[in-house]
Computed example of a mutant assay.
Amino acid sequence: MSHSATRPVSAYVFDAYGTLFDVHAAVRRHAGDLGPEAVSLSTLWRQKQLEYSWTRALMGRYLDFWALTEQALDTAMAMTGKSDANLRQRLLDAYWKLDCYQEVPTVLKRLKDDGNRLAILSNGSPAMLEAAVRAAGIEDLLDEVFSTDLLKTYKTRQDVYELVTNHFRIYPEAVSFQSSNRWDIAGATAFGFRSVWINRIGAADEYSDLPPIAVLADLQGLLALS
Rank of each mutant, 00 (worst) to 15 (best):
Y95T: 03
G124I: 13
L118P: 03
A85T: 12
K82Y: 06
L92R: 08
V104T: 07
N116M: 12
L73N: 06
A76M: 12
M79W: 11
W96T: 08
I120T: 07
L92S: 07
M77P: 01
N123D: 14
L108T: 03
Q102G: 11
K112W: 00
T75H: 15
T80C: 10
A94D: 15
E103T: 06
K109M: 10
G81R: 08
A78N: 10
D93F: 06
R117Y: 06
Q89C: 11
L92F: 11
A119D: 04
L111Q: 05
D74N: 11
L98P: 00
V107S: 04
R117C: 10
R110P: 01
A85E: 15
K82F: 13
L108Y: 01
L98A: 09
L118K: 06
G81D: 12
L87Y: 08
D84E: 13
D113W: 02
D93Y: 03
D99F: 05
L92I: 13
D99W: 09
V107Q: 02
L121M: 12
A76Y: 09
C100V: 09
G81T: 10
R90E: 13
V104W: 01
D99N: 14
S83D: 15
P105S: 05
D114R: 13
A85C: 05
Y95D: 04
G115H: 00
Y101R: 03
D93A: 13
D114M: 08
L87D: 06
T80Y: 06
Y101V: 01
Y95F: 14
D84M: 10
S83G: 15
M77G: 10
L111I: 10
L87P: 00
A94Q: 01
M79G: 04
Q102D: 14
T106H: 14
L87W: 07
N86W: 02
L87H: 11
T80M: 11
E103H: 09
R88F: 08
W96C: 01
E103S: 04
K97F: 09
